[in-house]
Design a binder for these strands. Structure first.
Length: 593
RNA sequence: GCCGGCGUAGCUCAGUGGUCAGAGCAGGGGACUCAUAAUCCCUGGGUCGCGGGUUCGAUCCCCGCCGCCGGUACCA
């Protein structure tokens, strides 16, 4: 079977701070498990992302710290790169939106849309901060609600009475940033003509029968009321507008969301250029490829409406001619996760309801976190994270389930045999357990290929449990001296199951998988691990770190026979049992931070 | 307000128009000792939110209600 091209597009984390585990649960673990599975299954995967660094929030935060937006973005780009690398995210390229390559591609796409008539200039009335001259987004506006009189109404909506508001109607409007009264100024902005794509988007969405229902339903409703959307702002931090009279203006920039989604394309191009073949990205952007996009549900509108509209318009659809990037394929699936809540509350950095990825990695390691988020993450509905469940899953499933299977099997072999034994005659029980291992590749693979992590991991862990039961039933430790042949056969089967389960779990537990593979006597790459490279900007900009990796030669998604005679050393524990006091410690951290 | 989702054993969740509604964990009992007191077996426990309706029959379909949550795109 020919290898398919599978584009794995991972939502771009915003570089205004460290990421918390809710972010990772939404875009991180699901995308990486999917990509790793597809690579093991033999497909050609291109997985890209980067930090999203433009926009008002970064500008505002930089101002408050007395540094430039670029300096702030540099800082958090580095923090996020380190977090995602340590989490084991196997990007082919994790870059950023402040590269010259990205600027160029964004401008190409803008130009293509402009040439096809899908971008038009219109006056727009918007709130401007008098002290900076910058657009003040609705989220930074507050005032008294003209409908109910509530004083904390946001610019676009009153949290008290729930009515949608026009910012200009706010009584006594003020900036949340510095309290000043905004001025409402009419200025020219560029608008993306979303209504022109309504019909094409409608039939495209209609044809998606196997997406998660929440994504399709939500998107179809949006189509009913599409309006042109401003894609520029009065701001000096962002990609310049590539038009005469606009290009050199210091106060007009492309809106952050327009440029951020184009990152999927620019990162693909950057990856290709770095491989030495500037066109190498194209096979992942043609109709024959599979293009999966992973994100939290707050990003759905950008991936099912705005990004497809950009792709369509720049490709000359529904009318026009393809731009410089050619005809670009639409997402084949938009995979959205719901939200993770934290001990019953919504994540909120400002209210210290937050668990940072870095802290979990440092204290408990990447794989336990990946495992938890894969098996108990917000796959189909909002899901609560509790430390108690984290500890319970870690101890009961990783330590006592999978870790124990590996440890007891390898201990017995190392102690009494020193190498993988050959199997003698197989009993029915032997055949049965071996068959459970080999058959699981189909069922677990099907689940992971459809981004059903919970089902896939649960199925793999069922095999782990069956193997533990097999050992308990066969009681090999009673046959060491009395029935050496039977002992060898049982242990051969046990090691085969360890090897099989290790592959089944490798997409979720890549670091652990490498350890187990090594303990079974393997050499060379097994799961494949990312690395951080410091690179030069390809077009003369500043250097920056990227996450990349060579994932060729990862273990195959099938049962491979263990080889008799391979030396087996005594194992070291794979996971650490967590004391119940961890729960109290972490809760205390939350409460006091 | 509008749109959507959820409400199933103590906890976290799965599930189907029809034999006794399931899993894991927690609880109770037992076996074993290779293994990080890990593993394995047995077991108690549920008006499937409430009230109607459709149907021979609904936890799963429809309506209403209560509760919880999310979205409401110029917040990423």
């Amino acid at each position: 079977m020919p290898r398919r091209h599978i584009f794995t597009a991972v939502a771009w984390p915003y570089a205004n701070g460290p990421r918390h585990i809710g972010h990772i649960a939404g875009f991180g673990v699901p995308s990486d498990v999917f990509a790793r599975y597809q690579r093991m299954a033999g497909e050609r995967v291109l997985m890209v992302s980067g930090t999203d660094e433009h926009g008002t929030p970064i500008q505002v935060q930089a101002d408050s710290e007395g540094i430039t937006a670029a300096e702030l973005a540099d800082r958090y780009n580095r923090v996020i790169v380190r977090d995602l690398h340590d989490l084991g995210m196997s990007y082919d390229l994790f870059t950023r939106t402040t590269t010259r390559n990205h600027y160029a591609i964004v401008q190409e796409m803008f130009t293509a849309l402009w040439d096809n008539g899908y971008i038009v200039e219109r006056p727009q009335r918007s709130a401007i901060s008098p002290s900076t001259g910058r657009t003040l987004p609705d989220r930074y506006l507050e005032g008294t609600c003209p409908i109910c009189g509530y004083d904390g109404a946001r610019g676009d909506q009153c949290d008290h009475c729930g009515n949608q508001l026009d910012p200009q109607d706010l009584i006594d409007p003020r900036s949340k940033i510095n309290g000043e009264r905004p001025t409402f100024v009419e200025s020219s902005q560029m608008f993306l003509e979303l209504p022109a794509f309504a019909e094409v988007l409608g039939s495209w969405l209609q044809s998606q029968t196997d997406w998660r229902p929440n994504v399709v339903n939500f998107s179809r409703r949006l189509l009913d009321d599409l309006k042109p959307r401003a894609i520029t702002r009065d701001l000096d931090w962002g990609v310049p507008v590539p038009l005469p009279g606009w290009r050199d203006r210091p106060d007009k920039r492309i809106y952050v969301w327009f440029d951020a989604v184009i990152g999927y394309l620019s990162a693909s191009v950057e990856w290709a250029r770095r491989t030495g073949d500037p066109d190498a990205w194209r096979p992942w952007w043609t109709e024959g490829a599979d293009a999966r996009y992973f994100m939290g549900k707050d990003n759905v509108v950008f991936h099912t409406i705005i990004w497809p509209a950009i792709l369509l318009g720049a490709s000359g659809r529904p009318a026009g001619t393809p731009g410089a990037m050619g005809v670009l394929r639409l997402p084949s699936e938009v995979v959205s996760s719901e939200f993770l809540t934290m001990e019953g509350r919504k994540f909120s950095s400002s209210r210290a309801v937050v668990i940072y990825v870095r802290d979990v990695l440092d204290r408990y390691g990447a794989d336990p976190l990946r495992y938890y988020l894969a098996v108990a993450g917000p796959e189909t509905s909002d899901t609560d994270f509790t430390w108690e469940q984290f500890v319970t899953r870690n101890n009961g499933e990783l330590v006592a389930g999978w870790g124990n299977l590996v440890h007891r099997s390898l201990s017995l072999v190392a102690k009494h045999l020193g190498a993988v034994p050959a199997a003698g005659e197989l009993t029915e029980a032997d055949h049965d357990i071996l068959s459970q291992g080999s058959r699981a590749f189909a069922s677990v693979g099907q689940a992971l290929g459809r981004s059903q992590l919970r089902a896939g991991v649960t199925e793999a862990m069922r095999v782990v449990a069956a193997a533990n039961k097999y050992l308990s039933d066969q009681e090999p430790w009673k046959r060491v001296g009395s029935e050496p042949d039977r002992f060898a056969t049982i242990m051969h089967c046990a090691l085969q199951l360890v090897a099989d389960c290790n592959r089944l779990l490798a997409p979720v537990l890549p670091a652990t998988a490498d350890k187990v593979a090594a303990m079974l006597g393997g050499h060379g790459p097994f799961a494949g691990q990312p690395r951080v490279d410091e690179v030069e900007d390809l077009d003369g900009g500043r250097p920056y770190p990227v996450i990349t990796g060579d994932y060729d030669g990862v273990a195959a998604w099938r049962s491979e026979p263990v080889v008799p005679g391979t030396p087996v050393a005594p194992p070291t524990p794979l996971f650490s049992k967590l004391d119940a006091s961890v729960v109290d410690e972490e809760l205390a951290r939350l409460a006091s931070s």
